[in-house]
């Protein structure tokens, strides 16, 4: 009798949990699904009531964007800016993070905190000084300027993350490697680095996302030639109205690579993001 009661109670709990999860998932996914579907419809089909979920998809919007507009260029700009800044942030951040975690400097903690505190600067506060600097060095409107702007935020973040991962790694393996015949640098990249690979991947994805999604920096520092996709989307709002089809298609293009990357490295992402949480 009591057992049966327990069973029903468990069942009710289950039903409740799954209902809640389903609602949350629909809530989160609905806009995305709607966006992706809309991007595959014609302008007319987009607003038909009730909305159709089964229809003949058309890639005409995408074709138009790439053929008539400058979308290919924007996409290229976005890819270059975010990949370059992520690459620089990861290389320098990994080296610096390792140095801070392993070097026994006086005040290493203070240096580390100062570095991460620069990441906490509101973007708006960074724009003005960067603007002045870029203007002076003729970096306004250049891809290099944008990469530098992203790196000012990604580098401290990557450095702090990598430092945390390295600090949690017991140093014995590197010591063993050095006794085995490795230089300090070999111990770093042959022994320590492979062990924080999940952390490196997770950090890279987060850096990439920051740069890829950025609107504020790009809207200020880019010119017509160096515009990135988020800026391009904003330009679809014109006095004559909003080009909904293109907006949806662009949104899809923004989300898709991150989605694919996230799924591809999901295993690393979870392990990397929880690396700090273990123990």
């Amino acid at each position: 009798m009591a057992g049966k009661q327990l069973l029903t109670r468990k069942l009710i709990a289950r039903v409740f949990i799954y209902t809640a999860l389903t609602i949350a998932m629909v809530w989160a996914l609905m806009p995305i699904v709607w966006m992706v579907l809309s991007s595959l419809k014609t302008q007319a089909g987009m607003f038909s009531m009730p909305p159709k979920f089964i229809f003949k998809p058309t890639f005409s919007t995408y074709a138009f964007m790439f053929n008539e507009g400058n979308f290919g260029l924007f996409l290229k700009n976005s890819v270059i800016a975010s990949l370059s800044s992520t690459f620089i942030a990861l290389v320098l951040g990994t080296l610096g993070g390792y140095a801070l975690a392993r070097g026994n400097y006086k005040g290493a903690k203070h240096i580390a905190f100062w570095i991460i505190s620069t990441r906490m600067t509101p973007i708006a506060a960074a724009i003005v000084p960067l603007y002045l600097i870029f203007a002076k060095f003729h970096l306004m409107g250049t891809a290099l300027g944008l990469v530098i702007a992203y790196t000012t935020f990604n580098l401290p973040f990557a450095l702090w993350m990598m430092m945390t991962f390295f600090a949690e790694l017991p140093p014995d393996m590197e010591h063993a490697a050095m006794v085995d015949g490795a230089t300090k640098f070999q111990a770093f990249y042959k022994i320590a680095l492979p062990q924080v690979a999940p952390g490196l991947v997770a950090t890279g994805i987060l850096c990439l996302m920051f740069a890829w999604n950025d609107f504020a920096f790009a809207s200020v520092f880019t010119s017509h030639k160096t515009q990135t996709i988020p800026v391009a989307v904003s330009l679809l709002v014109s006095q004559t109205g909003i080009a909904w089809g293109q907006a949806m298609a662009t949104g899809t293009v923004i989300i898709l690579p991150m989605l694919v990357a996230g799924l591809a490295v999901r295993k690393y992402l979870v392990r990397g993001l929880s690396m700090g949480a273990i123990k």
Binding site: D172, M173, H175, A176, M178, V179, A182, T183
Partner: peptide, 14 residues
């Protein structure tokens, strides 16, 4: 360490 030509076994094996 690499030039001392010694080998070490660590407590936690490393």
């Amino acid at each position: 360490p690499k030039d001392r030509d010694i080998a070490m076994v660590f407590q936690n094996y490393a």
